[in-house]
């Protein structure tokens, strides 16, 4: 093993950096609520199980003093600012705690006119990474328990937020597992890919956790819930499942912020972020479009140029 590398199970970073972020979030949240600058702070609080965390809408200084930032803070809290979850927040300006990946989602929502930048006080967190799905939360964060998205994260440090909590410790270089998996799939024949996805989608039980945690799935009436006319079968069978996941990936193309929450929450371990990531990669190659931490006026599929590629059109 070369110097500077570490094994998959050694702790990734000094836990002190999470403690520092926690202290900074608490101080900012308490200040905001006491000064009446916001009506609520959407952050994380500890759960009953060791190492677990959950979203918390803090409306009092006491609650704000309980907010935390740990590797268990997996949720993308931008969800709470989407139309679908906004009902959980009080009226007025709110503050939200975001990691870099969550900030891209928040910027996307602002870009899609779901809220205005000045309606939200953004508390960014310098995030070394969070646990992946199914990780043992009681153990310190290590490469093996790190979320796959975090191994290749380019937004550890949020930009353009009102404040940044914590500082970033030096982070090890890790093998880009997701990029490798994507390349593996791309190298397959269409038949092999069909077999791969058929098997993955067959497992889907249509709990719709992927949809419900996605900040961009805010339609009041999801196309896939409609039955007159019915575009997608609602029963959890391979046919409807496949259609659902294709439609989902298509509707997120050019919007997905890459927070990979859909993949994390999938109780059936379907690697959903591969679809989103593939679409992001294609849209970058075709149109140079990337989701960023700053709101963009137009998305890849809501704009066009005269000279767009049409080599596939006869």
């Amino acid at each position: 093993m070369t110097q500077g590398q570490q094994t998959e199970s050694t702790p990734l970073v000094d836990p002190a950096c999470y403690a520092a972020a926690t202290a900074a979030i608490r101080a900012e949240a308490v200040r905001l609520l006491e000064a009446g600058e916001v009506t609520a702070v959407v952050g994380y609080r500890a759960g009953r199980r060791a190492g677990s965390a959950m979203p918390e809408v803090a409306t009092t200084a006491e609650a704000a003093a309980q907010l935390i930032f740990t590797p268990g803070c997996q949720n993308n809290l931008a969800l709470f600012l989407s139309k679908a979850k906004r009902e959980a927040l009080p009226k007025g300006k709110v503050a939200v705690v975001v990691k870099g990946c969550d900030l891209r989602a928040l910027a996307g929502l602002i870009g899609e006119s779901q809220l205005k930048r000045d309606e939200v006080h953004v508390i960014g967190v310098a995030c070394p990474g969070v646990y992946g799905a199914g990780a043992d939360l009681a153990k310190p964060l290590a490469a093996e328990s790190l979320a796959r998205k975090c191994r290749e994260c380019k937004v550890h440090l949020p930009e353009g937020t009102d404040v940044v909590a914590g500082t970033l410790p030096p982070l090890p270089d890790l093998a880009p597992l997701e990029a490798e998996e994507l390349a593996r799939l791309e190298a397959m024949t269409p038949q092999e890919r069909w077999a791969f996805w058929t098997e993955q989608f067959a497992r889907c039980i249509r709990c719709l956790a992927c949809r419900q945690v996605c900040p961009f799935c805010f339609c009041t009436q999801c196309l896939c819930d409609r039955n007159r006319p019915q575009a997608v079968d609602t029963s959890p069978r391979p046919a409807g499942n496949t259609a659902w996941h294709i439609v989902r990936a298509m509707h997120l193309a050019g919007r997905c912020a890459g927070c990979a929450e859909c993949e994390r929450v999938c109780p059936m371990d379907i690697p959903l972020n591969l679809l989103n990531r593939k679409m992001a990669q294609e849209l970058f190659e075709l149109y140079g479009f990337e989701t960023t931490m700053q709101p963009q006026e137009q998305g890849a599929l809501t704009s066009y140029r005269d000279g767009d590629d049409q080599s596939f059109i006869k």
């Binding site: 799939l185 791309e186 269409p190 038949q191 092999e192 890919r193 069909w194 077999a195 791969f196 996805w197 058929t198 496949t242 294709i246 990936a249 298509m250 193309a253 050019g254 679809l275 593939k278 679409m279 294609e282 849209l283 075709l286 149109y287 890849a300 599929l301 809501t302 704009s303 066009y304 767009d308 590629d309 049409q310 596939f312 059109i313």
Partner: peptide, 17 residues
């Protein structure tokens, strides 16, 4: 708009096989 949408959709269909 359709041109972009279908350019993307083709890639998605290709990716699922």
């Amino acid at each position: 708009h359709a041109r972009r949408r279908f350019a993307a959709f083709r890639q998605l269909l290709d990716f699922v096989g």
